[in-house]
C-alpha cells in the first residue's frame, strides 16, 4: 500500500507524489493548506490542491524568479514580493547587500506562519531580517498607493484560479509597471507554455505594451505541471544586462550563467506563438 497526493489542476492531466506523512492540514481564512512529508521531494506545501513548492526542487523556481530581474537591475534597493508567503523568494532577495527594504504583500498569514514552522531548514528565517516588511494586505491596493517605488517586483503567486486570478490581468500588470522605478524590472510567475499558451500570450501583450524589453523564460521544476514553470520578465532594461552582474553572496543551486541565458530560449512552437 502507498499513499499518494494527486494533483488535478487540469481535467486531462494529473500528477502524483508519494506521501510519507501528513504534517498539517487546515482551512485558512483564504485557502485549504496541506503540508506533507513526501517520499522523495522532502516536505511539500499544497494550496487548494495544487503543489506550491517542495524542499527538493523549489530552488529552480525561487532563484529564477528572483535573480533574473535583480541581476538585470544591478543594485536593487527596494524590492516588492507579491505573495511569496513561503519565504523562498524573500530568502533569495535578501542575499543582495544592496537591498535596503524587502516588502512582502501576502494576504494569507497562515502560509507565512506554517512555512516558518516547517521550511526553516530550506529558507532559514528571512522574516527575522530587519529589512523585511511583511504586509497582510491585498497587492492591488498596495501597488496603487506606491507608484515609482520599487527597483524590483517579484510576483510570486498561486495559479490564476479564485483569488489570484486578478494577478494575471492587464490591470495588475499596469499597476505593477507603474510601481517600478525607471529602469526597474519585474518577474512574474507565468505558468506553463504547453498548458497555458493563451494566457501567456495575453500577458505578453500587456507586458510589451507597458515596457520595452519583456521576455518569457522557463525553469525545470519536476513537481509543477509539465515539469516546469515559466516567468514573464517585464522591464525596459534588457534581461541580458543581468548576465554581466556578479551573483550576490551565498550559494546558487540552480542558476548559473549558462542556465540564465538558456532559460530565455523557447521551443519553436511557443516562440512563434509568443513573439511573431
Amino acid at each position: 500500500m502507498s499513499i499518494w497526493f494527486t494533483e488535478e489542476l487540469h481535467p486531462y492531466y494529473r500528477k502524483g507524489i508519494r506521501v510519507k506523512q501528513i504534517l498539517a492540514d487546515e482551512q485558512t481564512q483564504f485557502q485549504h493548506m496541506q503540508l506533507v512529508e513526501t517520499e522523495f521531494f522532502g516536505k511539500a506545501m499544497i494550496l487548494d490542491g495544487i503543489i506550491q513548492l517542495t524542499e527538493r526542487d523549489n530552488m529552480g523556481y525561487h532563484e529564477m524568479i528572483v535573480h533574473v530581474p535583480m541581476l538585470a537591475v544591478g543594485q536593487p534597493q527596494r524590492v516588492l514580493i507579491v505573495g511569496g508567503g513561503d519565504g523562498g523568494s524573500l530568502q533569495q532577495v535578501l542575499r543582495y547587500p544592496s537591498v535596503m527594504e524587502a516588502v512582502v504583500c501576502e494576504l494569507d498569514q497562515r502560509v507565512v506562519e506554517l512555512s516558518r514552522q516547517y521550511f526553516s531548514a530550506s529558507f532559514g528565517d528571512p522574516w527575522a531580517d530587519s529589512r523585511t516588511k511583511l504586509l497582510a494586505r491585498d497587492a492591488f491596493d498596495y501597488l496603487e498607493a506606491n507608484p515609482g517605488q520599487f527597483d524590483v517586483i517579484i510576483s510570486d503567486t498561486t495559479d490564476p484560479i479564485g483569488m489570484a486570478e486578478r494577478l494575471f490581468s492587464d490591470e495588475f500588470y499596469k499597476l505593477m509597471v507603474r510601481a517600478l522605478v525607471k529602469g526597474g524590472a519585474a518577474a512574474t510567475q507565468c505558468e506553463q507554455p504547453f498548458f497555458d499558451t493563451e494566457l501567456i500570450k495575453e500577458i505578453y501583450k500587456s507586458a510589451i505594451t507597458l515596457t520595452k524589453n519583456p521576455a518569457y523564460y522557463y525553469a525545470n521544476i519536476p513537481t509543477y505541471p509539465g515539469g516546469g514553470i515559466g516567468f514573464m520578465y517585464v522591464s525596459d532594461t534588457p534581461w541580458e544586462h543581468g548576465l554581466k552582474t556578479p551573483y550576490p553572496p551565498g550559494m546558487n543551486n540552480y542558476i548559473n550563467p549558462e542556465i540564465h541565458k538558456a532559460a530565455f530560449a523557447l521551443p519553436e512552437f511557443f516562440r512563434r506563438e509568443l513573439y511573431e
Binding site: M1, S2, I3, W4, F5, T6, E8, G16, V19, I22, D25, Q34, G49
Partner: peptide
C-alpha cells in the same frame, strides 16, 4: 474541478 464533488486529499493505493 467540479464544484459538486470535492476531490480527495490523497489516494491510498491498495495493491491486490
Amino acid at each position: 474541478m467540479s464544484e459538486l464533488v470535492k476531490p480527495p486529499l490523497y489516494w491510498v493505493a491498495d495493491y491486490l
